[in-house]
Amino acid sequence: MKKIAGILVIACLAGCAREPEVADLVKYMVVETRYDTEEVNESANVFTDYSTFVLREDTLGFVSTYAGSDTILLDEAGTRIDFVNSTIERVAEHVTDRGFTRVEEDENPDFAVKIVVLENFSFFQTVSYPGYYSGYYGYYGGYYGPIVNTYSSNFVTMVIEVDDIKHYAENGSKYKVIWSAYIGDLLTTDDRKNKILVAVDKAFEQSPYFSNN
């Protein structure tokens, strides 16, 4: 009888200490957007001061806390990396729909849209995110990922970022980050390509101020 009681206790404890199923957890991606409240607020919106933007054509930056893992992502048929072009196109579509014109880098764009995939950085909990880059805004010269304080994890997050080029001099010769979107987790989510597109749509939907009107 005591043995049966022991088995029952263990079974009950195991049943009580439950957690959500991973398949349920990753059904929807988390989408967080942030904006610089000095530049976007009730009395001012820097987006109304922009008209042109630049966005890299066909590759995404990949930055990892694992040494030597940084690279550039290209779509590769038959692999898990199949979301590069579709993501870039969807982001460009949204930015254009908000009233901005896509131009080449040598056409003096007002802002840059950067898309970077980050491995092992966590954004949604302990982010400490500086508002500035001190160097090149990291476009064709290579990718300079956002600078974050973080702790180790196995998360893969996509970051879409708007860097102010137009006011570089006024901002103390720095490229100020005006807007950023964080989409995750890319590692565990299935149907990644489509869910990223849904997440990109949501990022713009929850950022109505991202417009030059």
Binding site: P20, D24, L25, K27, Y28, V30, V31, E32, T33, R34, Y35, D36, T37, F124, K202, Q206, S207
Partner: peptide
């Protein structure tokens, strides 16, 4: 659900 906060917003489902 989308939760707005000063300087941003986050959309997620929560358990």
């Amino acid at each position: 659900t989308t939760y707005e906060y000063p300087g941003g917003a986050i959309t997620t489902d929560i358990y």
